[in-house]
């Protein structure tokens, strides 16, 4: 377990960048433009800024995983603390993916649901392992 953790974290790093990239495709699939035209300008601006920040955070997490896999797998107190945060972050995201988003939309996009749900579950599992079973 301990020896494969850094590698699993590096895979997670690459997947974070993949998810960040997928966020550039989502606006078209989910019709952001048409939807956001209905709300007030300030809400539209805040929505887009949040979406931008999600991509920024995903890129940050991705680079962290690619650059510091040994620290994140328990090599330092900082690394373990960051893994703990990532474990909480992705566990909550898994719960939201499966329990909060509309079933109808997920049924309309089964591959997208599987793609995101699967990757988020992998992230949660890796960082829970890194937090509790790292060296």
């Amino acid at each position: 377990m301990k020896s494969i953790l850094p590698f699993a974290i590096q895979i997670a790093g690459a997947l974070h960048l993949l998810v960040a990239g997928a966020n550039f495709v989502l606006p078209g699939i989910l019709h952001y433009r048409e939807n956001l035209a209905k709300v007030s300008p300030i809400i539209r601006q805040i929505f887009l800024v949040h979406a931008f920040y999600i991509v920024l955070v995903l890129v940050g997490f991705g680079l962290l995983c690619l650059g510091f896999p040994h620290e994140l797998s328990g090599g330092s107190s900082l690394g373990r603390c960051l893994s703990g945060f990532l474990a909480v972050f992705w566990s909550l995201r898994v719960i939201l993916q499966f329990g909060f988003y509309d079933r109808a939309t997920k049924r309309d996009h089964p591959l997208g649901n599987l793609f995101f749900g699967g990757i988020f579950t992998y992230f949660a599992a890796v960082f829970i392992a890194a937090t509790f079973f790292g060296k």
Partner: peptide, 22 residues
């Protein structure tokens, strides 16, 4: 304002905001 969005996009906005807060 968010009531004007589709249900999925409304939830997306809340998730974005929650994630940023976290």
């Amino acid at each position: 304002d968010l009531a004007k969005l589709t249900s999925f996009n409304r939830k997306l906005m809340w998730v974005y905001a929650g994630t940023t807060l976290l």
